[in-house]
Each structure stands twice: as structure tokens, then as C-alpha cells.
Design a protein around this nucleic acid. Sequence first.
DNA 1: TATGGTGAGTCTGGATTTCCTACTCACTGG
DNA 2: CCAGTGAGTAGGAAATCCAGACTCACCATA
Lengths: 155, 155
Amino acid sequence: MAATKDPRPCSIADALALVGEKYSLLVLREVCLGNGRFDQLVRNIGAPRDILATRLRRLVDAGILTKRAYSERPQRFEYRPTQAGLELEPVLLTLMEWGNRHLRKDDRPMVVEHICGHELVPLVTCQACGDPVQHEDLTPHPQSPGWTVTGPTAA
Amino acid sequence: MAATKDPRPCSIADALALVGEKYSLLVLREVCLGNGRFDQLVRNIGAPRDILATRLRRLVDAGILTKRAYSERPQRFEYRPTQAGLELEPVLLTLMEWGNRHLRKDDRPMVVEHICGHELVPLVTCQACGDPVQHEDLTPHPQSPGWTVTGPTAA
DNA sequence: TATGGTGAGTCTGGATTTCCTACTCACTGG
DNA sequence: CCAGTGAGTAGGAAATCCAGACTCACCATA
């Protein structure tokens, strides 16, 4: 799914080029849960085995996962998130929160408990002021060319 | 890309079924920037027109975008995010932040300014205690069957 | 030592999507 | 009348995806 042609220089597009393919984020979900073996991934994600193998290779190449043998003779492997992989977890959590809010009615299939003792409700905040991020409070500033807003509707 | 077969009941998978297809999140990016016209989207995303038309239909059906005429005679339309769509913006921002950190060296192609006056660095926090979310602080609690961790590596 | 089972994939051929280019249709502006 | 714009459709080629079978190495057991 490489964003090879995205006319804009954009970290969102670049990130999606790595993890935006079908199943990639679900792989990350499983791996963050500690289910990093091939057959676990197949069962828990429901992806075709060959596609999964392709995704795993790409994620390893991208430095998001590592492949570790947990047994020689017989060789058995486990995929684990790297630091970069772990730092994608907030994306998963934010997505989960959105899904919980908009796609379900009260029945969350999975609850994550935070170390503070409460159920985790992920909230995206501004690091500087700590306030929750809201659309109206944001002003985009293009830094690179390629971001000139086209057409008369300039945001 | 419907996660029709995801063996797990999971809001992440459900959310990805709606917005995980190629280009969908880039559409949302543009629409959040105010570039909601078909040809703007084509130019700014670089997606084939027919694919874009399909994505737009699906996003409208999903209640993430609305299609509004901004001119009759000639009929001209604009896509805008609904409330649900706007609430996906944190996902985009989190992804952007990850991309900035891991895929670039200092050159952010786009900087978002928060109303507080600082450059926005999105931070995912626990709503209850306000602390930044870190992997080690999380304990998943499956609420539905289908989440029994398979295999001996139970996280 | 045959028999079965697991883990980690690869292979194959067909179904589905995506991609690209061109085209339409309605209208506007000169 | 002619060119241009906006919002798509149409058609066929190219790339991906999919399901299930298959491999290969090893272990267990009987």
C-alpha cells in the first residue's frame, strides 16, 4: 500500500505506507498483547498465512517488529514489538476508543486497565498545555511545499 | 477490507473495517483540512478517481463524512467530516506524531499549532489520571469470549 | 519405527481490488 | 462556439488477496 504517489509530503501517509496495509495493525495488536507466534497470529487475526508472512517481513524490515527464536531445535520464532512498535500502541488505543464510542453500545469487547487503577480511556492531549485536543483548537502550518492548499476552499 | 473474519470481537478491527482501506485516512486528513471537493481530493491524495468515489461513498454511509452541495446549477459537492469523523482526527495526529518521530529527522513537513500557542505534540494520556500511556502500565481485560489468549505465551 | 501432531511457513490457482486512461454530462465564462 | 471545471463512470490490465493444500523439521508415543 505504499503511498508512493501521495502528492504531499506527509508523515501520516508515510506511516500508513508502513502500517496501513490490511492486517498490519492487527498484527501489532496481537504482538502488543504478547501473542507473537505465527500460528497464534493466524488464528487470532484470521489472515491468510501467506499474507501474514508478507506483513511480518515488512514490519520486521521497517523496524517495528523483531523476530526472535525462542527455541532452536526445533526452530521456533516469536515476533515482538520494537520500541518503535510499542510507540504505535497509542494509535491502536485511540482507534479502539473511537470504535468503542461509535461502533458499539456499552459492550466493549476488551477493557484495558491502567496502572492508576481505572479503566483506560485514552485521551489525546497537547503535550505543551495538557488540554485535550479538539479540532477547533488546531491550526495547520505547512512547512514543506506540496502543502499549498488547492482550490478556493482553503481551510 | 472489512474485517469480516476477525476471530476476535474488537473495536480496533471494527474501526479498521471502516477506515482501514487504502486512502480512507488520507481522505479524512484532507477533509479535516477543509479540502473536501472531489478534485481537490484527487489531486492532494493521488488516488484514482474511481477508488476515491468508492471510499467517499463508504465513508458517507458509515457516518464519517457528509456530502453537501455548495452550489446548485452547476451541482457541486463538498465532503465534510461529521462529529464522528472529527473524532478520528486524534488517530491521524497520533499517527503523524509517530511518523515524525520514526520516519523523519527533524524535518516535519507539517506543523500543527495548538490554540495554547505551542506546536502541537499529541500525547495519549489516561483520562482518569492524566498520565501518558505507556505499554508497561496497561493490563488488558477481555470482556467477551473470543479473547482467550491462545497458546502458551499468554501476555 | 510407523503414526500423529506442532510450528512456521511456501505454493497454487482463482477471486477480488486497484490502477490507469479515457470518457461522459452539466454547466460556466469568454 | 469553444475551452475549461467539477464530479464522477467505464473498461481492461495489473496487482493483491484468499483458501486450502503442501512442505519440512522436529517431537511424542507406543
